[in-house]
Amino acid sequence: EVDTLELTRQVKEKLAKNGICQRIFGEKVLGLSQGSVSDMLSRPKPWSKLTQKGREPFIRMQLWLSDQL
């Protein structure tokens, strides 16, 4: 189980620290539009309420944070 709230907090922190905009992060890392990324980072759904497809971007965020992506 992933703590989506904590994960998105860490992602936002790393984006800010490295000067990466959400649009680029969305396109290059998540394969999503800036609007989708913005929504996901500001209002993450609980892991238990996400479908497999809904969980994929959060898994990619985890990999990106651990420099595996």
Rank of each mutant, 00 (worst) to 15 (best):
G19M: 04
P44T: 09
D3W: 05
T8W: 06
G26M: 07
R43Y: 14
T51D: 15
L65Y: 01
R23M: 06
K28W: 04
Q22E: 13
K53Q: 08
D3R: 03
L32T: 06
L15V: 07
S66W: 10
V29M: 09
S36C: 11
E6M: 06
I20K: 03
K17Q: 13
D39I: 04
K45A: 08
G19V: 02
L7A: 08
G26A: 15
R43H: 13
E1D: 02
D67T: 03
V29L: 09
P46A: 05
Q34Y: 11
C21Y: 02
Q52V: 12
S66I: 12
R9K: 10
F25E: 00
P57M: 15
R23P: 01
R43E: 08
E13K: 09
Q68S: 10
T4L: 06
R55I: 01
G35M: 09
L32K: 07
T4H: 06
L65I: 04
L5A: 14
Q68N: 11
V11C: 02
K28L: 03
L32I: 11
R23F: 13
D39N: 06
V11T: 07
V29C: 09
P46C: 03
Q22D: 02
L15D: 06
T8Y: 03
G54M: 13
K12P: 05
L41Y: 02
N18R: 14
R60C: 01
K45F: 05
K45P: 11
V2N: 08
S36E: 15
E1T: 05
P44N: 02
Q62T: 03
K53C: 02
G19E: 02
N18P: 12
Q10V: 07
E1A: 09
D67R: 13
A16Y: 05
G54K: 02
V11L: 04
G54L: 13
K12R: 06
G31L: 03
L5N: 14
F25Q: 00
K45M: 11
R9F: 07
K45S: 07
W64N: 01
K17V: 07
D39C: 08
L30K: 07
L50H: 00
L41G: 09
N18V: 10
F58R: 00
G31F: 03
T8P: 07
S38N: 14
L50M: 05
V2W: 08
L41C: 02
Q34P: 15
P46Y: 10
L15G: 09
S42H: 13
L69P: 07
W64I: 00
R23C: 03
E1R: 09
E27R: 13
F58A: 00
E56Q: 11
C21G: 11
D67K: 12
R43M: 05
S42G: 04
M61D: 01
I59F: 06
L65D: 00
L5Q: 12
R43N: 12
G31P: 03
S66V: 11
I20S: 03
D3Y: 03
E27W: 10
R23A: 09
K12V: 03
K14N: 05
L5H: 12
L7H: 05
T4S: 05
M40D: 11
W64D: 00
P46M: 06
V37P: 03
G19K: 13
R60D: 00
I20E: 01
